[in-house]
Amino acid sequence: MSELDRLRHAMRVTERPGGAIDLAAVMRDGRRLRTRRRVAGAGVATLAAGLAGVVVAVVVGALPNDPGTVERPPPVAVAPAPPTDGPATPPDPSATMPPTTAARTEPPPSPLGEVIDSGVRHGADQRVYYLVRVSVPGEPRVSIGLAAGRRAPNGTLTTDILVNDVEGSDRSPGFHQIGYDEGGSAAPVPAFGYFVGPAHRITGTVDGRQVAARLARWSADKQVVIFWFDPADLAPGDRLDGITARDGSNRRL
């Protein structure tokens, strides 16, 4: 038997019977994840249908002089319109949900302005960010959401995560939202968000470590600064403890 044959044989005969997986926990967590993804999909659906419904928001200290501390509650808040001031209650994972068909029926995203190539690759796909139109019932000043998606070599866009405000104005100065990988995407999504203002540098803090974000200005409104964290610096899914923006004179915004 050659070394390779022996290796193949060894890898197979040492397999143990299943049993270590908690299937009840798998299905419970899977339902929660599916709910979050469906809610994100609802944000996309409003693009075409303008339907009233639920929206997703990952809210960060949004004022320019806010100390910039990022809270650690569940990042996805589901709020029936109109949204309340406090954090909304996460959806009941045991709630009856309609069949998941969104992935096949969602229209392709229609980016507003230029699509931003992050430089991160998933095989042949590019990790890209783009703004899309959203509709939030009772919130006429919220009209854009930021999407993390993948662009295939043929130009096809696939949205992985969409985040948008649920109240106020999507152009108010400061941080608006941060999208984190919740495990629902086929490819890891680096943390991302946008800041409105003259930011030249954005730095996140995680476990006492400072991590610099990469920036790009939105082609349709140069005050909107889209940022994301290189997955080598901040693993997708890891949450920030704080975030700050500084202008060209290194003044904190």
Binding site: G30, L33, R34
Partner: peptide, 11 residues
């Protein structure tokens, strides 16, 4: 992996 698979199971 199974959690994420279940989340996408219908698809």
């Amino acid at each position: 992996a199974l959690v994420r698979t279940y989340a996408s199971w219908s698809r």
